[in-house]
Design a protein around this nucleic acid. Structure first.
Lengths: 146, 146
DNA sequence: ATCTTTGCAAAATGTTTGCATCCTG
DNA sequence: CAGGATGCAAACATTTTGCAAAGAT
């Protein structure tokens, strides 16, 4: 990744402008106005390059397609997904060391945590197209091709 | 889902016999000897039926394809993935209430937690085909087609 | 001018579905 | 023997890749 193209700039900008991790499709839509004719293949190619470069980080939530956010200072953090609008937000807090939770003989090196609930824009009452509670997973659909 | 077929019995048994959540492919391989000619389509169809029936639960880890485990008593628990062998194990412990971690205006209803490290069979040194640390996600690959 | 990057279309993956047939109850 | 369940292949959604054309330095 060495040259600066209109497409790459638009993709970078789209992610930088978002206040939350975006889906490849959202990135395409956000960047397309800046780079007319932008193709999804180019979005994927650039996402991969930017992640390899350390400029971006992919945000993987259980059963969800990868989203992307700026690496920023790269500090440890987690994510929150709204059960109503499905959008994902960064969460600064972290429960800390969880090595005591592992079974004997197992060593913990890292962890991933996702919180589920309602974001500030979605009323805690409005049970819209909600995802099922995390430990009540619906049928397998990592590839359910949402 | 009303009839008892050789295939369905084999699938149920394969999952019951496993000490950990299995991938659809692992289920196919484990059940095939009991039900020769078993097709992957049948595995998927039954997994979905059994999940809908509440007999099974899908285990979704970040960036991973769905795995399946028995619902059992359906108690709240989490999972551990070995960075060396990639296998997933159940973890009884839970950090408890995490609602304080959410940003103001957000309400937490549930959470998902995944621990990463080495299982009892994989030496903490053997850095085999390991997954990257959780907050250092590799490029998107919910569909990375392992 | 060179060599990266793009767009398009085709391939690869994991999962789902249509349909004729098979088998359970 | 009726209707659910299976196997096969085709369909799907998402992501990747081959290749010729376009573009950046």
């Amino acid at each position: 990744m060495e040259r600066n193209t209109r497409q790459r700039t638009a993709i970078r900008q789209a992610i930088a402008d978002a206040a939350r991790p975006l889906l490849p499709q959202e990135i395409l839509q956000a960047a397309e106005p800046e780079a007319p004719g932008l193709s999804i293949a180019t979005v994927y190619r650039n996402l991969r390059m930017l992640v390899d470069d350390g400029e971006l980080k992919s945000v993987l939530l259980p059963g969800e397609v990868a989203r992307y956010e700026l690496t920023g200072d790269g500090h440890h953090h987690h994510h929150f997904q709204c059960l109503s609008c499905q959008r994902v937000f960064e969460v600064e807090a972290c429960p800390g060391d969880l090595s005591s939770l592992a079974p004997p003989g197992f060593t913990v090196e890292d962890h991933d945590l996702t919180l589920y609930g309602r974001c500030n824009e979605c009323a805690p009452a409005g049970k819209a197209k909600s995802r099922k509670p995390a430990h009540d997973h619906a049928a397998g659909h990592s590839h359910r091709h949402r």
